[in-house]
Write a protein that binds this DNA or RNA. Structure first.
Lengths: 149, 149
DNA sequence: TTGAGGCTTCCAACGATGGGAAGGTCAAGA
DNA sequence: TCTTGACCTTCCCATCGTTGGAAGCCTCAA
């Protein structure tokens, strides 16, 4: 099976298959006499594994670990679970950050008339950015308060 | 004010200030006789604007638009609101995707004993990845079902 | 035989940021 | 005045995952 067929069968693009080979995530493929890469059913199986893991947001480094465990028949499920839980933690943290951003923006946008006048609490907030962007527990004060009262 | 002071005052690193200048997000800074960049209070104000917008997750391209509107006294708040709402939409979509990932992984992890045995529903799920990764509405079937019943 | 389409490698770009090297400048202290 | 350390300058490289393109070879069918 050449790279194009393997790509269609696995859902991983040919470009990415070559990249994964180049970076060592997957072993070098067999080659035909003319130099074409040649893939087996097992290879496609591995590529699907990678594709599914990418869909779940695992980094390539994490997938490298997971592939190692996948191939290791004497693995301990605790090792797999540890990687998964760490990734979940990472996802939840990022989700929290993005929700914070979205909520802040939603508040600002709901205070913006959104008409042809120039006055805009969103710009006013951006403009009044202050130094304590790091601590951030105490709410920022700004033009928005006029709307919220 | 040299670039280091401007960086400390704005919360934008000197590296990024140079980068923003190079890519045209901000105009070239004035220079002292010896070639050092020289920043005014207005410049720092603009850099804080950028910093705050970055903290809210706006891309540099979006910030470019926002800066244009910020400087345009005859702007319409509707234009600002449109950008903000589109960004909120983007954030909520990404949040949804990541929540989907986290929930799926959480389910898998909760079915994983996490001990020294090799059997692992997480790996089993990754391994059984099927072709309909795109549609995905109907739940994937796999080893996980044994646990969930 | 020719053409289409697939394969190969190599190079470059994206976005935002950080690191570092090589060399010039500034300000304070001896 | 000289030194020293901290700062500035430009330039190049790396990240991460992915995509694009160019130039050239291979394969299959008409």
């Amino acid at each position: 099976m050449n790279i194009g067929e393997a790509a269609r069968a696995s859902g991983v693009s040919a470009k990415m298959i070559r990249y994964y080979e180049q970076t060592g995530l997957i072993p070098p493929a067999d080659r035909t006499a003319s130099g074409y890469r040649d893939y087996s059913g097992t290879d496609v199986h591995m590529l699907r594994f990678i594709r599914r893991a990418r869909d779940l947001g695992f980094s390539v480094a994490e997938i490298d670990e997971l592939l190692g465990l996948w191939r290791d028949r004497s693995r301990q499920s605790a090792d797999v679970k540890r990687i998964a839980l760490a990734h979940i933690e990472d996802l939840r943290r990022k989700i929290g950050e993005m929700e914070q951003m979205a909520d802040t923006l939603q508040t600002l946008a709901s205070c913006c008339s959104g008409d042809n006048r120039p006055d805009c609490p969103i710009l006013a907030d951006l403009e009044s950015a202050n130094d304590d962007a790091d601590q951030e527990p105490k709410r920022r004060r700004g033009a928005i308060d006029n709307c919220l009262q």
